[in-house]
Write a protein that binds this DNA or RNA. Structure first.
Lengths: 233, 233
DNA sequence: AAGTGGTCTAGACCACTGA
DNA sequence: CAGTGGTCTAGACCACTTG
C-alpha cells in the first residue's frame, strides 16, 4: 500500500527472488497466495502470475494448484541448449558443408533402440548412417533410426540428397525431445569413419523425439574432437 | 469466425505451428499482426500473445516490435538443461556424497580466465580446486575461480566444509550463465586426481555466471567416465 | 513518426488437486 | 469439495525499432 511505484512483472519477480535469496522464503517454504502478493505489491494478480511463471520456468519455485507456490528445495542451474541443423551450423561459420549417406536399410532395431522407443513386439525401422562434412573433412557422424509407423513418408525421401534431420525438422513436429550428452572414446570403426585416431575423446549426443507419445526418431551423433556445445541463459 | 469453439492459447499455438509446418508460413516469412490473428481466431490479442511467446521461447518464431513476427529461418532443437548441485545429484540416487577441498589460493588468473571474465588490468581471484565423491570414489573434479570484487564474502566461507557451488547457488543470484560442454581426454595430473587412466574420455562442463555484467565465478568440472547429461523438453 | 509487440488491469470463470 | 493456480477478455497505455 505504501508502495505507489509502478510495478512491472520483472520488478516483482526480482523482489520475490530476492526474498528467496535472503532466506525470507527458504527452500521448501510455501509462498503467499498470488492474490495476497498482489495486494502486498499493489498490482494485479496477473502480474504476480507472470513473475511466478518466470521463476517457475527458471527452476526457482514450483507451482501447483491448491498446494500453492513453494521454493524449490533443490536449486539447479537451468540453461537453454540449442542444437542447430548441422548444415546451418557449418555454413554459419562460413565453412563449406558436405553430406554423405553411408547406409540406409530397413531392419529390426537393436534392443537398446527398441527400449528407447518403447516398442513391445517386432517392428522394423529405417536405419540410416551418414556423415556430415565441414570443409571436406568429417565433422559429425550420425546413426539414426526412424519409426516407419509414425513417419512412413520417410521412405519417399531421398536421403542421399537431404539429411534426415533436415527433412524431419522441417516436416515433422514433435512434442517431446529427450537428449543425452556424454563423452566417449571412439571405437575403431567409428574412428576410421571420422578419420581420427582410435580412442579419441568425442562428444556424443543422443536425441529421441516423440509426437503424442509416438516415437519419431532416435539419433546418435558423434562429433569431431574439439566440438563444443554452448548454451545461453 | 466460423469457429465458435473456445480457443485456448495452446490450441492457437498448435494451429499457428501447424501452418508453419505445412508451409503456409515459410521460414523467413512474416506472420500477420497479433491483432489480425486475434480477429481470425476469434480470441483476445493477449491469447495470441501467449501462444506466440510459447513459439518464440521454443525457437520457432522471432518477434520484434514494429518488425512483427517472423518464422525462424534456422530451425533448432531447443531443450532445457538442468545442472544440479552435485551433492543433491549423488544423494538423489541414494549414494553417499563426499567432498574434499584440494587447494584454495588467491592468485592472478590465467589469461584464459581473465578473458572469460573480461578483466582488463591485474586483479586477483580466488582459485579453489576440489573433488566431489560418490560412495567414496572420485566423481567430479572442479577448478573454480571466484571474483573477489563481485563476491568478497567468499573469503569468509569455509570451503573445506561446503562446496563453493553450494554456497554461491544459495547466496548469489546471477543474471547470466554461459555454459560450454565438450569432451576431453584426461591429462595425467587430472587422471591421477580422478584415479582413472590417463587419456580417459570425460565430459567437461565450463560455467561462467554473471550479475549485472559483473563476473561471479567460472568453473571447469571434469566428470567421471560414463557421466551423462540428460535434458527434458 | 508510426507500426507492432509487450505489459498492465480488473474481473470472471475454469481446472486441477490435496485434504 | 474447497482452495489455489491457470486462462481468457477488453481495453488502455507503453516501449521499442524500423522505414
Amino acid at each position: 500500500m505504501s508502495n505507489t511505484q509502478r510495478q512491472s512483472w520483472i520488478d516483482v519477480r526480482d523482489q520475490i527472488h530476492g526474498r528467496i535469496l535472503d532466506s525470507t522464503y527458504r527452500p521448501g517454504d510455501r509462498l503467499p497466495r498470488d492474490e495476497d502478493l498482489a495486494g502486498e505489491f499493489g498490482c494485479a494478480r496477473t502480474t504476480i502470475h507472470r513473475a511466478m511463471r518466470s521463476l517457475a520456468d527458471n527452476g526457482i519455485v514450483e507451482r501447483r494448484r491448491k498446494a500453492g507456490t513453494t521454493v524449490r528445495s533443490d536449486p539447479v542451474t537451468r540453461t537453454t541448449l540449442d542444437i542447430p541443423i548441422t548444415r546451418l551450423e557449418v555454413e554459419g561459420r562460413g565453412d563449406t558443408y558436405g553430406y554423405h549417406l553411408i547406409s540406409r536399410e530397413i531392419r529390426q532395431p537393436t534392443s537398446l533402440i527398441a527400449a528407447r522407443f518403447g516398442l513391445a513386439g517386432q517392428q522394423e525401422l529405417l536405419n540410416a548412417c551418414s556423415l556430415h562434412l565441414s570443409n571436406g573433412r568429417p565433422y559429425i557422424f550420425e546413426n539414426r533410426w526412424i519409426s516407419l509407423q509414425t513417419v512412413p513418408e520417410i521412405l519417399d525421401v531421398d536421403l542421399s540428397e537431404e539429411s534426415a534431420n533436415e527433412w524431419l525438422v522441417r516436416n515433422r513436429p514433435y512434442n517431446r525431445c529427450d537428449v543425452q550428452i556424454y563423452a566417449h572414446a571412439l571405437a575403431e570403426t567409428d574412428a576410421a569413419r571420422m578419420d581420427i585416431p582410435t580412442g579419441s575423446a568425442v562428444l556424443v549426443l543422443e536425441r529421441t523425439t516423440w509426437i503424442n507419445g509416438n516415437p519419431i526418431t532416435h539419433v546418435r551423433t558423434l562429433t569431431s574432437p574439439g566440438y563444443r556445445l554452448a548454451t545461453s541463459g
